[in-house]
Amino acid sequence: MNRIFWLFLAAAAMAAAQQSDSGAEGDAANGKILFTRIGCYQCHGYAGQGGRAGARIVPMPMKAQDMIRYVRRPPGEMPAYTEKVVSDGELRDIYAYLKCFPPPKAVKDIPLLNSIKGQ
């Protein structure tokens, strides 16, 4: 039992390491081009900010492999992007690009937004 537990933990750690590495492997510059070319921006916005047509994807909450899995078989209204349309490598490039966006400022640090919120 103990041995199985430790084997499971080791496998999980390896999988996690692979997942976190897979994003770092991507080419963010190419990801930026792809983000526009294959139409990610159309629903998610050029800054990944989301809106009525698509969810916010910045900061990207998923690991690279999870994002790829999601894009291949999205459960909601998002169209599926199969390997024929975009490769895993290209999706990793997009992932790397999305990871480049800094977190947004807090509302209190944006004077205009803070002002109209507090009125």
């Binding site: 916010r56 400022k105 509302v107």
Partner: peptide, 17 residues
């Protein structure tokens, strides 16, 4: 809603928020 409006605040093209 206000937190969401902060995303893409300085983006160009201009965000609709």
């Amino acid at each position: 809603d206000f937190d969401d409006a902060a995303y893409g605040w300085d983006a160009s093209p201009v965000s609709t928020a």
